[in-house]
């Protein structure tokens, strides 16, 4: 019987033999398992991308036997939300870093202007130049900005020293 099935699949049976065998297979229900097994063996030997097996059926049956659980659906949804949140957070962090580097890491445009005007200018900061504090203090006393901005503007005179 098994040999006949194998021969049928390989196309080695005559038409009448094949018809007789197929009739037999239809009539006896137990043989369709063998029919499927031989097809599986052939499929695996030919190494196709998709191989049919009864594993799927077995799995489906077991899943059907399990009680219906609603929670997994919600869990999955929360996971995507967390993912979305962390994605948003990293985008924000990137934006923050970009903003900070824009705000903090940015050299004042004085250097550019200095080069354009090609004067004997150094990109030195005032804080490294203690002799300047005298001028800053004297200037600050009369600075009109101090009237609007208050005492906080005096920070300019001692910053970085």
């Amino acid at each position: 019987m098994k040999q006949q099935i194998s021969a049928l699949m390989d196309g080695e049976l005559y038409d009448d033999e094949a018809e007789a065998l197929l009739d037999k297979l239809k009539r006896s229900p137990g043989t369709d398992g063998e029919w499927r097994t031989y097809h599986l063996i052939g499929d695996v030997l030919r190494q196709p991308d998709h191989t049919y097996s009864s594993i799927g059926t077995a799995m489906r049956e077991r899943l059907q036997a399990e009680p219906t659980v609603l929670a997994p659906g919600r869990l999955a949804a929360r996971n995507t939300r967390w993912f979305a949140l962390s994605a948003a957070a990293s985008v924000m962090a990137l934006a923050l870093v970009a903003w900070m580097s824009l705000q903090v890491g940015q050299e004042p445009p004085t250097q550019m202007v200095m080069h354009q005007q090609s004067v004997a200018a150094r990109p030195a900061s005032l804080s490294s130049n203690r002799g300047m504090s005298d001028y800053l203090m004297a200037h600050q006393e009369f600075s009109s900005g101090a009237d609007v901005q208050g005492t906080a503007s005096y920070i300019r005179t001692v910053a970085g020293q």
Binding site: P108, A121, S125, L126, G160
Partner: peptide, 8 residues
Amino acid sequence: GLTSQGAI
């Protein structure tokens, strides 16, 4: 030369 500190 030119030195600067923020707006100053």
